[in-house]
Design a protein around this nucleic acid. Structure first.
Lengths: 191, 191
DNA sequence: CCTACCGATCGGTAGG
DNA sequence: CCTACCGATCGGTAGG
């Protein structure tokens, strides 16, 4: 039973990710599992509950990967590099789930949507605080740490749209480039 | 008649932007204009045609604003600053239209979707080429100009999700911050 | 631009 | 897990 539910969530992730939640019907999900539409409801209570399960698991993955790094002591730049690597690994490691979490969560009902909004805000806070700590230590320059956090998160989240596992750039190389862009920008590196 | 069509597109922009294309019904659009659902079809041929009109106009706005700057001679950093300002102005100046263009275009039918994909790819090329020119001139450092273009465009496009005209940061201040982040990163500015 | 309607499809349930 | 169904809603059209 647990297994069947998992299969439903995996198929739903793929379909929600590629067509969007609203444009995916329960019968689309059932068809991919060789079931009749109504049969899904012996395993799940509603379409929204499937979305919620996907979203909540992905949210947990992101927090678990990034929070420990953010709260560790050490140079801010170094922690940011690792946080970027962790975030990119979660995105690329489960592209479909990540995409649904990042871009389809607004289709949740009010209560769950509010909870996700709070969770995302807390998550953004990890980046914001590490940037601010780097500034306070004289290590980094950022007039608006919150905007810096939004900036790097926006860039990383969009990876869920275009990343392909068989592409030229692996997760760590990609994360390395993004960290470099975030921390040093396009400035010609003086040596 | 022209006016009515325009009203339909404006209302559709607002609804597609906030709820998504698939989750917005023609009757939702009609209701906002105090019409019956079927009455819309004296002005437009289909739901998809409304989306296409919104998307194509926005695409044109982005190209018209950015292309001349990209193709002008001059230092790459300076052009990038202006391209970023231009892009951010288009996003913030028509948040709803921009959001629909940027994130709902995949609901277009195959032919129009392919055309938009080509247009977006050409648009990304403006940024990519200016970065590459800056590198060739020894002015900028970027191991992967294409990835740099994806990076800054991802960050800027996400602005359509959160920007509010009554917020603390106006379009030009916002663009200035983003240009600074892209060109210099978080590096502590040595003086 | 409205009334009235079309066939198709939606999320979900009853009863087995 | 299936068959058969529920009421609601979908995009779109005919005819005025």
């Amino acid at each position: 039973m647990q297994t069947r539910r998992r299969q439903i969530e995996d198929v739903a992730s793929a379909l929600f990710s590629s067509r969007g939640y609203a444009a995916t019907s329960m019968r689309d999900i059932a068809r991919a599992l060789d079931l009749q539409g109504g049969s899904l409801y012996s395993h799940i209570p509603s379409k929204e509950a499937v979305l919620a399960a996907i979203v909540e698991e992905a949210a947990e993955d992101f927090h678990a990967a990034v929070r420990p790094v953010a709260e560790r002591p050490g140079p801010a730049a170094e922690r940011l590099r690792e946080m970027i690597a962790a975030h990119v690994r979660v995105v690329t490691g489960g592209r479909e789930r990540a995409k649904v979490f990042l871009f389809e969560w607004t289709f949740l009902g009010e209560d769950r949507r509010d909870a996700v909004a709070r969770s995302r805000s807390a998550y953004q806070g990890y980046f914001e605080r590490v940037v601010a700590e780097g500034v306070a230590a004289g290590e980094l320059s950022a007039p608006d740490p919150k905007l810096s956090a939004v900036f790097i998160l926006s860039a990383m989240n969009a990876i869920a749209y275009w990343y392909r596992p068989d592409g030229a750039l692996g997760p760590d190389a990609l994360a390395g480039h993004y960290a470099e862009l975030f921390l040093r920008g396009l400035q010609a590196h003086e040596r």
